[in-house]
C-alpha cells in the first residue's frame, strides 16, 4: 500500500551550521542532507556557507570544497565531473540533476541538496541503486543476434537506422528520471521506470538487434511498461536533455502494433 508520511526514523532533523569564512564577499549557503546509518540518528540537514569567490561554479565544486576543507565525512558519488559518468545525480533545489552540470548561480537563495528521492539511502547523498541496476540487467541491454556478423567486419547499419538511436544512446544512467517518477515511487518493485525503459527502447529500436520479439514480450505487462502515466517528470528532469517519456510512448505503440 502506498505510504504518504515518512517513517519516524526518516524524519529530518536540524543539523550543524557552518558559518561563512571570515571576509567572505559572496556567501552562499548549502543545506545538505546528512544520514549516517552507523550512528542510529535520524537524518539531518547541515548548513555550510561558502564564499563563491573561492569556489568553482558548479554544485559539485561546492560539495568537493566542503568535503576537502570543512567536513571530510560528507559522502557523495562523483567521478568525471563533466556529466558523462552519471554518478553525481542528486536532488538540487527540488529537481533531480547532475551536481557537476548544475551551476550554483542558477539556484536562488539557499542551495538545498538531497539524495535522489524515494530510494534507500546508504549514506548522505548516496542512494542504494541495487534494484535499478538489477532492473537494467533484466532488460538484457546487449546486442542479441542469430545472424553472425560479416566476417572481419562490423554489423552494417544505415545512417537512418543509426539515427533512430539518437536521444537514446546518450543516457548516462544517472537515474534522475526514475527517481523523479511518482509511478516509479509507488510501484518501483514492478514498474521498470523511465531510465530502464529508455534503455530497453535503445535495444528494441536498434536495427542490428534480432531479439525484438522477446524484448517486446518481456515488456507486454501492466506494470513493467504500462505503469507509465505520461506524467513527464522524467523528461522534465533529465540533465542530459533526453526524452524518456517519448521512448516509453514509442515502446507502448510498438507493443500495441503487434496485435493490430
Amino acid at each position: 500500500m502506498v505510504q504518504f508520511t515518512l517513517p519516524a526514523h526518516s524524519r529530518i532533523a536540524k543539523g550543524r551550521d557552518w558559518p561563512a569564512p571570515a571576509g567572505a564577499k559572496r556567501p552562499k549557503t548549502f543545506s545538505i542532507y546528512r544520514f549516517d546509518p552507523d550512528s542510529g540518528d535520524n537524518p539531518r540537514m547541515d548548513r555550510f556557507t561558502l564564499d563563491l569567490d573561492d569556489c568553482g561554479p558548479m554544485v559539485l565544486d561546492a560539495l568537493i570544497k566542503i568535503k576537502n576543507e570543512i567536513d571530510p565525512t560528507l559522502t557523495f558519488r562523483r567521478s568525471c565531473r563533466e556529466g558523462i559518468c552519471g554518478s553525481c545525480s542528486m536532488n538540487i533545489d527540488g529537481l533531480n540533476t547532475l551536481a557537476c552540470l548544475k551551476p550554483i548561480e542558477e539556484v536562488k537563495g539557499e542551495v538545498k541538496i538531497h539524495p535522489l528521492p524515494h530510494l534507500p539511502v546508504v549514506k548522505d547523498l548516496v542512494p542504494d541503486l541495487t534494484h535499478l541496476y538489477a532492473q537494467y540487467q533484466s532488460v538484457e541491454p546487449w546486442m542479441k543476434t542469430d545472424t553472425p556478423a560479416p566476417p572481419g567486419k562490423e554489423r552494417p547499419q544505415s545512417p537512418e537506422e543509426r539515427e533512430r538511436l539518437d536521444g537514446l544512446w546518450e543516457c548516462v544512467l544517472c537515474f534522475s528520471c526514475s527517481a523523479s517518477c511518482p509511478s516509479y515511487w509507488w510501484s518501483g518493485s514492478r514498474y521498470l521506470g523511465p531510465a530502464i525503459l529508455l534503455q530497453a527502447a535503445r535495444w528494441v529500436f536498434d536495427s542490428r538487434d534480432e531479439a525484438k520479439p522477446e524484448r517486446l514480450d518481456a515488456l507486454d505487462d501492466p506494470f513493467k511498461l504500462f505503469r507509465c502515466h505520461t506524467i513527464f517528470n522524467c523528461t522534465n528532469t533529465c540533465p542530459k536533455g533526453l526524452d524518456p517519456a517519448k521512448a516509453i510512448a514509442d515502446l507502448k505503440r510498438e507493443v500495441f502494433k503487434r496485435a493490430e
Binding site: T130, H131, Y133, A134, Q135, Q137, S138, S189, R190, D217, A218, L219, D220, D221, P222, F223, K224, F226, K252, V255, F256, R258, A259
Partner: peptide, 17 residues
C-alpha cells in the same frame, strides 16, 4: 536482486489493447 527485478515476468494480458 535480478530475481526480484524479473519477478513473475510479463503478464502478456493484452494490456496494450
Amino acid at each position: 536482486p535480478l530475481g526480484r527485478a524479473r519477478g513473475r515476468g510479463a503478464a502478456k494480458s493484452g494490456i496494450a489493447h
